[in-house]
Design a protein around this nucleic acid. Structure first.
Lengths: 360, 360
DNA sequence: ATGAAAGCGCTAACAC
DNA sequence: GTGTTAGCGCTTTCAT
C-alpha cells in the first residue's frame, strides 16, 4: 500500500486516476504483475493456485485493466471501424447488428463512422485508422479510404485488415462480402415477365454505384432472357431513398403510356412510389405492379405488401465480421463471399390488366 | 536516423509498428519531442518559426500521433460510448446521426453498444467504461450501468460524465434530454377526441418503460380533459414493434365492439396495426382512425399517411451530445432539456362514422 | 519559448 | 511456471 501511495505522489499526472492498477492486484495476490497479466490473457499458463489468488484479488479490488496501456503495449486496440454512408438508412441497421454481434462474441468493440457524404469525415477516419486506433475496418461505402481522391492524403498507405461489405471495391485485394446483385435483379425481372409484364420500368440506384451497375445488368439480362426488348425510356433514375421513389412515381403518373410493372431497386423507393401512384388514383397492383429490393421490415406491412428480393442483412453483417476476424487471426479467408437472396412474393405484383394496345 | 534505428532494435516489440513516431518528426524539425507535441496541442505556445518547421516535418513524414499512447498519458480517450437498446430500430438511427455529427464537430469519436436486451453485454460495457476507454457516455436505455442489478457488478461506481437521452433515468443526477411524452400523448388524445372520437383505444409501450408511463398518463389526461371516461379494456399492450402493432390489430379485429380510433404509441405499431385492419377489410380512417407516435420516415408514405407526433430526433441527438460535451468541459448544463414535439396531421385520422349505438 | 526526462499502466522478452 | 524489467509513444512537469 505504502509503495503505491508513494508512487502516486511521485507520478506527474495532472488528473489522478482512481482506478485500481495491476500492481495493486499483484501485491494483494502476492505474485508479480506479469502473473496477473497472464492470469487474464492466458490462464492455462498460470498455476491453478496462483490463478485463483489473482482472480480473488481482482474481485476484491475491482480491478479493470487500462485498455489504453494494453493497447500501447500490445499494439492492438480490440476495436474495429465500421464505415458506412448513411447511418439513418434503415437498410444498414440490421447489418450493423450482425456485425456488432459477431464482433462482440470475438471480444471486439465497434466504432462507427457515418460518412454522410463528407470527404472531410473520410479523411478524418483515415487518419484515425492510421493512428492505430483500430485493428481493422469494415467498409460499407464502396471504396477505400482516400480512393477517388488525389494522392495528397496518405490514407491509401493504410495497411491493416479490411473487408468490404455490400458494395464491393474493385481492384482491392480484400475479402468482399455481398449478394449477387445481378442475379437477384435478373430473378425479379424474369418473375415480372413471367407474370405477363412486357413494359417493366426500372428505377435505378445512384449512378456510379456498384450495386446499381450490377442490378442494372441483371435487369437487362432478365429482359433478354424473357425475350423482351430493352427500352431506354423505361429507366428512371433514383438513389434508393423514399423521396426518389416518390419522384419516379410522379414521373410515371404524368406519362401517357405507362409501364405495367415497376421494378424499384430498393424497398424505400418502392414504398414511396406506391404512395404517389395510390394518391393519383392508380391502383397497385391492379393498374401497375411494383416490386422492391431488400425486404426491409416495412416491406411486409406496406399496402399492398411488397413483392421484393430478400437480402440476408444480419447474415451479411455477421459474415463480414467473421471474415475480418479471420484476417486478424492471420487465417485464410475467401476473397469473395456471396450470400443467397430470395424472391419474396407478396401482393404488390399481379398480372397486368389487358391494355388497350393489345398486350401488356 | 541512426538513433531511431537503434532504438528500434533495442525495443522488444513483437509486431513492429510501421507508423512514424514523434521522435522522427522532432529530429527532422530539429526540435524536441515536447515542441512537436505542443505544436499540435497548443500551437500558440510555440514560436511561429518552429511551429512551421514542425508542421512541415509532419507533412513530410506523414506522422499521425498514436492515440493509445496519448490516451495513456493524458487520461483522455476522445471517445464517447453510446448505449442503446436496439440498433435495428429505425427510431434510433436519426438520433444517432445527430449525436455523431455533434461529437464529430467537437473532435470526439463514438462507440456504439447495442444492448439487445442482454445484461451480459451491459456488464461488458460497464467494464469497458471503467477501463477508461471512453471519456463519457450517452445512455438511451433508461438506466445506469448495473442499475436494477444486484451490487455485485461494481458498475455503479463508474464516475464520469453521462447524459440520459429519451428515456429519462429517475434519481440520477445527470442531464436528461427528452421530449415531454406526457404532453405529447395528451395532445394526440385531445386531438382524437376533438375529431369526435369517444372510444379511443391505446396501444401501449413495454410495461415499466418510462416513456410508456408518461405517454399513458398523457392519454389519461387527454381523456379527462376531453370529458371522456377511461375504460380499462381500451388499453392494449405493445412494445413499439411492428409485430406488436399487428397483434393489437388482430385483437381489434376480433372484437365485437370496436374503438373508433386507435392511438399507437409508436409509428411502427400503427403501421403494423393498419396493415392488419386493412387485411380484415376494415378501412382506415373511414371505419377506424389510427394515430402513431414519432413521425419516422415511413409515416408519410404509409397508406393512409400517418397522423402522428413528431419527435425532433436529430435535434435530440445533438442536444444530448452537446450536453455531454459541456460536461466534459466542466461547464454548467441544465439538468433537464425538453424538446418540442409537434402534432402532424395526415390522413389516418378522420371523424368517426355514425355508429349504430348512437354516438361514436 | 524550449528541452530533458519522468512516467501513464501494461505486456512480453528473457532469465531462471 | 514465475519474476524482473524494458519499453509501447506520448504529454507534461520542471528547469532553464
Amino acid at each position: 500500500m505504502d509503495d503505491i501511495g508513494q508512487k502516486r505522489r511521485l507520478g506527474r499526472r495532472s488528473t489522478p486516476h482512481r482506478g485500481v492498477r495491476i500492481q495493486e492486484v499483484a501485491k494483494l495476490a502476492e505474485v508479480s504483475t506479469a502473473t496477473v497479466s497472464r492470469a487474464l490473457a492466458s490462464p492455462q499458463r498460470v498455476s491453478p493456485e496462483k490463478r485463483a489468488r489473482v482472480l480473488e484479488a481482482i474481485a476484491k479490488t475491482g480491478y479493470t485493466p487500462n485498455l489504453s496501456a494494453r493497447s500501447l503495449r500490445s499494439q492492438k486496440t480490440g476495436m474495429i471501424l465500421v464505415v458506412l454512408p448513411d447511418l439513418a438508412n434503415t437498410f444498414f441497421s440490421r447489418i450493423l447488428r450482425g456485425i456488432e454481434e459477431t464482433l462482440f462474441e470475438a471480444g471486439y468493440g465497434m466504432i462507427i463512422s457515418d460518412l454522410d457524404g463528407s470527404p472531410e469525415k473520410e479523411a478524418h477516419f483515415a487518419a484515425f485508422t492510421a493512428a492505430g486506433r483500430v485493428d481493422g475496418a469494415i467498409l460499407l461505402n464502396g471504396h477505400l479510404f482516400g480512393q477517388s481522391r488525389d494522392g495528397q492524403g496518405r490514407a491509401a498507405e493504410i495497411d491493416m485488415p479490411i473487408v468490404a461489405l455490400c458494395e464491393s471495391i474493385p481492384n482491392a485485394d480484400i475479402p468482399q462480402i455481398e449478394i449477387d446483385n445481378r442475379a437477384a435483379a435478373r430473378k425479379m425481372t424474369q418473375y415480372l415477365a413471367s407474370r405477363g409484364h412486357r413494359r417493366i420500368l426500372y428505377v435505378s440506384g445512384p449512378t456510379g454505384n456498384v450495386l446499381e451497375r450490377e442490378r442494372y445488368r441483371g435487369y437487362r439480362d432478365g429482359l433478354r432472357r424473357a425475350g423482351l426488348s430493352f427500352e431506354p425510356e423505361l429507366v428512371v433514375p433514383g438513389d434508393y431513398t423514399i423521396e426518389s421513389g416518390m419522384q419516379a412515381g410522379r414521373f410515371i403518373v404524368e406519362q401517357r403510356r405507362r409501364p405495367s410493372a415497376v421494378f424499384c431497386t430498393s424497398d424505400e423507393m418502392a414504398i414511396g412510389l406506391i404512395r404517389v401512384l395510390l394518391s393519383a388514383g392508380i391502383r397497385v397492383p391492379q393498374d401497375i405492379s411494383v416490386a422492391g429490393f431488400d425486404d426491409i421490415e416495412f416491406a411486409v406491412v406496406a399496402e399492398p405488401a411488397l413483392t421484393t428480393i430478400r437480402q440476408p442483412r444480419q447474415e451479411l453483417g455477421r459474415a463480414a465480421a467473421s471474415a475480418l476476424i479471420a484476417l486478424l487471426q492471420k487465417q485464410e479467408t475467401p476473397r469473395l463471399i456471396r450470400l443467397e437472396t430470395e424472391l419474396v412474393i407478396r401482393d404488390s405484383v399481379a398480372e397486368p390488366r389487358p391494355s388497350r394496345d393489345g398486350r401488356g
